[in-house]
């Protein structure tokens, strides 16, 4: 038998062709992070889950993965929160509203919101980890009756590095949100918690039988947050983690994002913690 008989008979789509989408709003979040609202052509919806990502490209500069920051309940556009960390993001910070970007996606496995329904939702976000977690937070807020308590722990380097400060003010004021924030270095005028994010966990009052937790932050954070959550008594099954890797193609082909046998762009970026235990390279 010729090898060709095993090839798929369908006509494959071009996986690498971006959709040209327009930036409709740009807002500076901090000295390093910028917010973008983006609209797809013809009012198309992105159709994502909280925790998924898109590939953003600028011709002549490059393409990179970015977490989607808006909730899918928010229609008509989607949002990104981008840190200036490389060539593409550097060019992105200099764009004006009206500019068109190449968008591919959404890609990956996001938060399985069904697994969170009826439960208290605990969000642990470190630094720029708030960007993807904001999608889940706003999803819960827009479907408030589907979930129990909403507890947010957010850690940042300093007061100046806090993201989405106007939304934080709303969460702090909302009686249905338990918002805890800490900064690594408290400056003058900072009256809140000082210390790394794990210092927020011991003080939490959790219903251990009915809480689902989602964690996202810098690579160093996961192991320590995990220890804190486990010593608090949370079961492995109640923990989900969103991991960062180099998702270059987004479609399980290029190999860059692999953690052992798992493609983060397919199985992740949001993993159920028990599934991560077999992936030694994960945390």
């Amino acid at each position: 038998m010729n090898l060709n008989e095993f090839l798929p008979t369908i006509e494959p789509e071009n996986l690498y062709a971006p959709v040209m989408a327009e930036i409709t709003e740009i807002k500076r979040l901090t000295s390093m992070e910028v917010f973008y609202r983006i609209e797809l052509p013809d009012g198309a919806e992105l159709g994502h889950q909280p925790g998924q990502f898109v590939e953003v490209s600028i011709f002549g500069v490059g393409e990179a993965p970015f977490s989607i920051s808006s909730s899918p309940t928010h229609k008509g556009s989607f949002e990104l929160g981008v840190r200036k960390a490389g060539m593409l993001t550097d060019v992105m910070t200099r764009l004006q509203p009206g500019t068109k970007l190449g968008i591919r996606g959404p890609f990956g496995t996001g938060v399985d919101v069904e697994k969170f329904k009826g439960k208290d939702v605990l969000i642990v976000a470190g630094g720029i980890g708030l960007v993807p977690m904001r999608s889940m937070i706003n999803y819960v807020l827009d479907r408030r009756e589907d979930f129990g308590r909403l507890i947010i722990c957010y850690g940042s380097r300093s007061e100046q590095d806090l993201l989405f400060t106007d939304e934080i003010a709303k969460w702090e004021a909302d009686p249905k949100v338990e918002f805890h924030v800490t900064v690594d270095q408290g400056g003058e005028g900072w009256k809140g918690n000082v210390g790394v994010i794990t210092t927020l966990v011991p003080g939490l009052d959790l219903d251990l039988t009915n809480t689902a937790c989602c964690v996202c932050g810098p690579p160093i954070m996961y192991r320590f947050v995990l220890m804190a959550l486990k010593s608090k008594g949370l079961s492995d099954e109640s923990i989900y983690m969103s991991l960062e890797r180099r998702m270059k193609c987004g479609v399980g082909k290029c190999g860059h994002c692999q953690i052992n046998s798992s493609y983060v762009c397919q199985d992740g970026p949001v993993y159920h913690y028990p599934d991560l235990k077999n992936l030694q390279e994960a945390l």
Binding site: N4, P8, L15
Partner: peptide, 16 residues
């Protein structure tokens, strides 16, 4: 072919 079949590779493979 697995997951998302890739057009460029699979097109080139035709007729071999």
């Amino acid at each position: 072919s697995v997951g998302s079949p890739e057009k460029n590779y699979l097109t080139r493979r035709q007729g071999a």
